[in-house]
Amino acid sequence: MFDILAYDFMQRALLSGATIAVLCSVVGMFLVLRRYSLFGDAIAHSSFGGVALGLLMGVYPLWMAYVVSIISAVLITKLREKFDISGDAAIAVMLSSGIAVALVIIGLSGGFSIDIFSFLFGSILLVDADNTILILTLTGSILLVILFLFKQILYSTFDEKQAMVSGINVSRINYLIIFMAGLTVVTAIQLVGVLLISALFVIPNIAAMMAGRGFRGTMVISIAMSVSSVLVGIMLSYSLNIAPAGSIVLISILMLGVMLAAKSRGLLHAAVWTGRQKKPV
């Protein structure tokens, strides 16, 4: 089974997949805690409209998807802030409009020669060297920004009012988070596609929140679960000749199931990890 690691395409898939897993886990943690769990879905569906637009205009589809996803992310926030539309309703509007735009464009153009399903369900095994570099660069940049502004982002996620009083520009931080989420979604489309994107943002994080107590500890657990589900999922998909997106998401769900079972039996209570070494007394 491990012979396949010798192939370049598999090395690229595993490296890109693990990198995307880390990114989705970190950005997803902030989205889940802000009750924005379906935000990823809305952006992904909108970016699908971007993909179709890119194909119609003859522009590289992912570039157009990045532009459309960022515009959609800002629009969702504006709908919430300016028109007092609830977060879930704003997400529902963007979610359906993205797919509607894509369907109309595909219909008007008479269909495209390239496989549109690779955007719907992901195509991590087809990631080329240029894309791998793009994924690594984007992930590195976003994680650096989060590291640099970690306290401001954490504080405004925890309690916006208190963060505001302590002098943090909460509105700017909110826009930064949705901007980063937009970039992350389009990057992750290559791994699991438009339809399963939420799984990468949400499942590892809610599973980790059952095991960790402190923020850093929970994030480390989430990253570990996310990366392992992606690596095992990709290997399994190759061995069983099934779609990687399906196996990745099912393995995350399996992990979540194990955590739920452990929690219901009280096993996680003793094993929680604060992410900080206890001082000797």
Binding site: L154, F158, D159, E160, G214, F215, R276
Partner: peptide
């Protein structure tokens, strides 16, 4: 307090 009850953050944090 307006925070999420399950917010994974300790007293020290």
């Amino acid at each position: 307090m307006h925070f999420e009850r399950n917010f994974p953050i300790t007293v020290r944090e």
